[in-house]
Computed example of a mutant assay.
Amino acid sequence: MRPKSKNNKTLTAILLIAPFIVCYLVVFAYPVYKMFAMSFTDAPLIGEGDWVGLENYVRMFQHKLFYTSVYNTLYFVGLTVVPNTLIGLGIAMMIVRLNGMVQAGILILFFMPYILPVTVVTQIWQWVLDQQFGVAQPLIEAVTGKRISVFRDPLWAMPMVALITIWWTNGFNVLLFISALRNIPTDYYEAASLDGATRMQQFRRITWPLLWPVTALVLTLQLIMQLKIFDQIYLMTQGGPFNSTYVLLQLVYREAFGRNQGGYASAVAVALFVLIVAVSILQYQLLKARGKS
Rank of each mutant, 00 (worst) to 15 (best):
F242G: 14
M93A: 02
L249M: 12
L74I: 11
Y189F: 15
S193C: 02
L217Y: 12
Q126A: 01
A191L: 03
G196D: 11
Y234D: 14
R290A: 14
L89D: 07
A13M: 15
I184P: 09
I164Q: 05
F40A: 05
I21V: 15
L275R: 00
V270L: 01
W156L: 03
V32H: 08
V22W: 08
D130Y: 12
M94W: 10
T68K: 05
A191W: 01
I178P: 07
A269G: 11
L25D: 08
Y284R: 06
V77K: 00
V274W: 02
L98E: 15
N170C: 01
G49W: 03
T73L: 01
K9S: 08
N8A: 14
V120Q: 09
D195G: 02
L86E: 04
K6C: 02
E55V: 06
M236A: 04
L11Q: 11
G134M: 02
M60H: 02
P44K: 05
S69R: 00
I108T: 03
M200L: 11
A265N: 09
F66K: 01
P154W: 03
A289Y: 11
E48W: 09
Q226T: 15
T41Y: 03
V268Y: 12
S280D: 12
L235M: 10
G145K: 04
A289F: 05
V118M: 11
V161A: 07
F230C: 12
L275Y: 01
W51N: 10
R290L: 12
T215R: 01
N84E: 13
L139T: 15
A265C: 09
L139R: 08
Y71C: 04
S280K: 03
Y33N: 05
S5C: 01
I224W: 07
E141L: 00
N99T: 12
S149I: 04
I95L: 11
W127N: 12
K64G: 09
W127Y: 11
N56E: 08
L194F: 10
N170K: 00
I21M: 12
G291I: 00
A180Q: 05
L282D: 07
Y253I: 06
I184E: 13
S179A: 15
M93T: 10
V58F: 06
W212K: 05
N243R: 02
T119M: 06
P44E: 13
Q250Y: 13
N72M: 02
T245N: 05
L235R: 03
F36G: 04
M225C: 14
A278L: 15
F20W: 14
V252H: 02
Q232K: 05
V143L: 06
Y33E: 09
E190L: 01
K9Q: 14
A29R: 01
R59Y: 07
T245C: 05
Y33R: 00
Q126V: 05
I140G: 02
F203N: 04
N72D: 11
F257Y: 11
L54N: 06
A136T: 02
W212V: 07
E55T: 10
Q123G: 03
Y246N: 08
A191F: 01
N8L: 15
G100M: 08
T198W: 00
R205P: 04
T198A: 00
I115F: 14
I21R: 00
L74F: 11
L249K: 02
V128T: 05
Q261V: 08
P213L: 08
P209W: 12
R204M: 13
L163H: 00
F203I: 11
G78W: 13
L223Y: 01
R254L: 13
W208H: 07
